[in-house]
Simulated assay, not measured.
Amino acid sequence: MSIRVVVADDQELVRSGFSMILDAQPDIEVVAEAGDGAEAVAAVRLHAPDVLLLDIRMPGMDGIEAARRVCSASGCRVVMLTTFDLDEYVYDALYAGASGFLLKDVRRDDLVHAVRVVAAGESLLAPTVTRRLIADIVRRGRTAHGVRAGAPAARLSARLSALTAREEETLRLLARGLTNAEIAASFVVSEHTVKTHVSNVLSKLALRDRVQAVICAYETGLVVAGEGEGEGEGY
């Protein structure tokens, strides 16, 4: 079964280029393209894709508002497209429910890999900015937004008590940017076991994905900005 994708960007060359690369894959199908946020939201409603590649800066309805609407009304996974790896709008995109972001100069193979990763339920952040990005969200005092709509940090703090000791440690390591493989090595268990721990964390905290779990860890004080710097890099 193919991964269904919508590509939304106000630059036609970017849209068509990404679409051509993805459509050439045997397991990926681009079901629609969109030139602005409103078109992207409409395309998701019409085609029910698995993944939406969404430009952050577009005329009319921008990518942030489009992501917020898509994530609140569907199970479609959103990956934001940006020109700069520390684009200020990336913070708002994560709070809107996006599963991560890609730079527009992404390599062909990395673009394809990203779509597959997100479609499989994982989250995607550029390796060079994972911990720095989340820590900066906290330093900017963005807690007023909450980790997700209707889930303020205080409520999530109370839910942390439902986690087992191993699940809580898994959340800490996620927040420090470690991959499943690195967490598995730290625990001396299989990656499958780590995936189970991550799934349990998301379920118990009622979070959408790993990105939201990382934000939760910082906003609830489970992990302090700057703590554990130098550990793991990767998606």
Rank of each mutant, 00 (worst) to 15 (best):
R107L: 11
A153L: 06
L52I: 13
A213W: 00
G232N: 04
V188A: 09
H197S: 03
Y95Q: 10
R131H: 11
G234S: 06
L86W: 06
P127D: 09
A149G: 03
V118A: 07
Y218Q: 09
M1V: 02
D87K: 10
A96I: 14
E191N: 04
L222A: 10
R148G: 10
N180L: 05
G228A: 11
R116C: 08
F84G: 06
V115R: 01
Q11E: 00
A126E: 14
V112K: 05
L86G: 09
C216F: 10
R139W: 05
A119I: 06
T193L: 09
L133W: 03
S199Q: 10
E12K: 10
T196A: 14
D110E: 11
V90L: 12
S74L: 08
D92I: 07
P26T: 08
L46S: 14
T143D: 05
Y91N: 07
A43P: 15
L205G: 12
V138T: 13
I56R: 04
T179F: 07
P127V: 08
R108G: 04
L171A: 04
D62H: 10
H197I: 01
L22V: 01
L173A: 00
A114H: 05
R172M: 04
A225I: 10
L222N: 10
L207T: 06
V117H: 05
A162L: 12
D36L: 11
E229Y: 09
R108Y: 10
N180V: 13
E88A: 15
L13M: 15
A149L: 11
A48I: 11
S123K: 09
I64V: 14
G150I: 04
K195P: 00
M1Q: 01
R176A: 12
K104W: 07
L160Y: 11
A154N: 08
L53C: 06
L174I: 00
R166A: 14
D105Y: 00
Y235C: 05
P152E: 01
D36M: 11
Q212S: 13
A165Q: 13
V129E: 01
A158E: 15
P127I: 09
E227I: 05
A144N: 06
S2Y: 04
T193D: 01
F187W: 13
I64A: 11
D109C: 00
E122I: 00
C76N: 07
A32Q: 14
P152V: 09
L22P: 03
L178R: 14
N180F: 05
V201E: 00
R172C: 06
G146M: 07
V106M: 08
E233Q: 15
V147M: 15
R77S: 13
V201I: 07
V188G: 06
S186Y: 14
T220M: 13
T83S: 12
A181N: 04
